[in-house]
């Protein structure tokens, strides 16, 4: 324990018990998911509660998950969409945030207020208007339909603006004297200086794209465009009924990249969450 005062053994025990209990409670669905993914169909519906199966059925379930639907294709779609969205978001948000943080022009505060309002609008509200808009543009059921609605992130603009504001003006003055254009200042000075904010945002953005089910369900219907979340739903529809083993195996595979990424970059991850929480 790294605190200044060490707890009494009793208090420490109590604290750990509480934390463990809460963590278990939160993790239970995930643990159950993994457990089901290695159980045989018969065992999955037994009244008896057991985490480890009597007969290990994992290979069959995972094989079925990978072969009966193009899960790899779903995952590739997910990666492509998440990173395309992220790239566009940064491309749009960084110059906007720079203008809002560092440039003086009439109407700046009003524009920033609009960004804040944009933060308050839930995505679901925009579902129908966006659907109609993309239908009119003839872009439904394309990658563009998955990517474009998220390309402007008010949250990114807000977060970057807060971060850019903390960059000293002298740095920008020096850059102007050194011959950098305003756009060059954004990309060569501000973005590298705001790397922690960018990484934090990138993590949050990729997670929410990866996990988003609502919009892909509306926007695409072709199997080859589906992201993993929609893929699982699709999987359930296809394999309807009681075949939960392969379904859970697929869900485990879909969640795995994020869990692995989280474990690998835990520090950054927590930084990102606290940073965006603070702002």
């Amino acid at each position: 324990m790294s605190g200044h005062h060490s707890l009494s053994p009793f208090a420490a025990l109590g604290r750990h018990a509480t934390l463990l209990g809460t963590a278990l409670f939160m993790l239970m669905p995930f643990i159950w998911m993994v457990s089901l993914s290695i159980k045989s169909p018969g065992e999955a519906f037994q009244a008896r509660f057991a985490l480890w199966p009597e007969t290990f059925y994992g290979v069959e379930n995972f094989a079925k998950a990978l072969t009966s639907v193009p899960l790899a294709r779903f995952m590739a779609n997910g990666v492509f969409v998440a990173f395309a969205v992220l790239a566009l978001q940064i491309l749009v948000a960084a110059p906007c945030a720079y203008a809002l943080a560092k440039l003086r022009f009439p109407g700046r505060d009003a524009l920033f207020a609009l960004v804040l309002i944009g933060l308050l609008i839930p995505q679901e509200v925009l579902g129908l208007p966006l659907f109609i808009l993309f239908h009119l543009m003839g872009l439904l059921d394309t990658y563009a339909a998955l990517i474009l609605p998220f390309s402007v992130s008010p949250f990114a603009i807000f977060l970057f603006r807060q971060f850019f504001k903390s960059v000293p003006d002298d740095l920008i003055h020096a850059a102007r004297l050194d011959g950098l254009s305003e756009l060059a200042i954004v990309w060569r000075i501000m973005v590298p200086a705001a790397m922690p904010a960018i990484i934090a945002f990138a993590i949050l953005s990729v997670i929410s794209r990866w996990n988003n089910l609502f919009w892909p369900m509306i926007a695409v219907s072709s199997e080859e465009l589906m992201p993993p979340s929609l893929g699982i739903v699709f999987f359930r529809d296809e394999e309807a009924g009681n075949d939960y083993g392969p379904l859970m195996a697929a869900a485990t595979l879909v969640v795995a990249p994020l869990v692995i990424a989280f474990l690998a970059a835990q520090k950054r991850f927590i930084e990102g969450v606290t940073l965006s929480g603070l702002k």
Binding site: P168, D170, L171, H173, A174, A175, R176, L177, D178, G179, L180, R188, I189, P192, A193, M195
Partner: peptide
């Protein structure tokens, strides 16, 4: 003229060095 075109150089109180370079 913009700062760049005035052909002057400046040293700042905070030095204003680019931290990532």
């Amino acid at each position: 003229l913009r700062p760049k075109q005035r052909d002057i150089a400046m040293v700042f109180q905070s030095y204003a060095l680019y931290p990532h370079m």
